[in-house]
Amino acid sequence: MTKAAKVIVLYYSRSGATQQLADAIANGIVQAGAEPLLRTVACDDQAACARDLVVEAEELRDCAGLALGSPTRFGHMYSGLQKFWETTSAEWLRGALVDKPAAVFTSSSSMHGGQESTLLSMLVPLLHHGMMVLGIPYTEPGLQQTTAGGTPYGASHVEHAAGSKLSKQELTLATQLGLRLGQAAVKLQQE
């Protein structure tokens, strides 16, 4: 019996929107027949980090893929996630993440809050680790229908005045990104 491909959904969420995106991505990973591991990083605000376990280096080495998510912080990822990546030199030297699929996701409180630059900046450590980056293709109808979050670079949520609840398109796009990531992880694990 083949082991299910384990895909880490590594994120930090303060107000809950990024966590909702993580959950939708995890749902898509399950639909692909893979196993999502919802993880976070050590952080100062324990209430924001209470639900999911802190990621361990061994999980990073053993994963079949990874989704990285953060709220937008002035066009960059949350500093705790950056700090985590700065501790992964041993995995980088081993090539632990080389040729594994990866995707990114984010949330912000405003339409021009820096989502695309956050998504692009989150790709940098993944590319340095040799991961294969996946986005959301323009053939996905939700990208044409959304009036809030969702980009070809990754799933996203824009709060506006609507609060942290994801729109229908944001939820669909995040689930589709998870499905695509899970399918890639399963296929690559079988090779």
Rank of each mutant, 00 (worst) to 15 (best):
Y12R: 14
R180I: 04
T146K: 01
A148T: 15
E56I: 10
A148R: 15
S121C: 11
D62M: 10
Q176N: 13
K168S: 13
G163W: 09
A57T: 12
S121T: 15
G28Q: 05
V41G: 06
P137E: 05
A96R: 04
D44K: 14
I25S: 01
P36Q: 09
L126K: 03
Q183N: 14
R14C: 09
A32E: 07
E191D: 13
L171N: 12
L37P: 03
C49Y: 01
T106M: 03
G80Y: 10
V104R: 03
T2C: 04
Q189H: 02
M132T: 14
P141A: 02
Q144S: 13
A32S: 11
A48H: 07
R39S: 05
S79M: 07
G178T: 01
V54I: 15
V9L: 06
L81K: 04
V186F: 04
R73A: 09
V133P: 00
L177W: 00
R73E: 05
V98G: 00
G135N: 03
S156I: 09
Y153N: 11
V124T: 13
T146I: 05
G28E: 01
Q189V: 03
K6Y: 00
W92M: 09
H129W: 07
C43H: 11
S121Q: 12
L119A: 03
A17L: 04
I25P: 01
V124C: 11
A184K: 00
A34C: 07
G80W: 06
H76C: 12
E159I: 11
L127K: 09
V186C: 09
A64D: 09
T118M: 08
Q46D: 15
L68P: 02
E191T: 14
S167A: 11
A162T: 10
A32W: 03
L68E: 04
L188H: 00
L123D: 06
T118V: 06
L188R: 06
G65D: 03
E56P: 00
V30H: 08
S109E: 14
M122P: 09
E59S: 02
T106Q: 04
Q115G: 08
G28S: 02
C49P: 07
Y153K: 00
Q115C: 09
R14Y: 11
L143I: 03
F74W: 14
M77Y: 02
L81E: 05
E59Y: 07
I136K: 03
P141L: 04
D52F: 10
Q176T: 12
A47H: 10
A184G: 01
G150R: 04
L93S: 10
Q82P: 00
H76M: 13
Q176F: 10
E159D: 13
V104D: 01
R61G: 05
R39V: 07
Y12G: 05
T118C: 10
L166F: 06
P137K: 06
Y138Q: 10
H76G: 11
V55Y: 02
G150H: 01
E140D: 12
A102S: 08
E191P: 00
G33W: 05
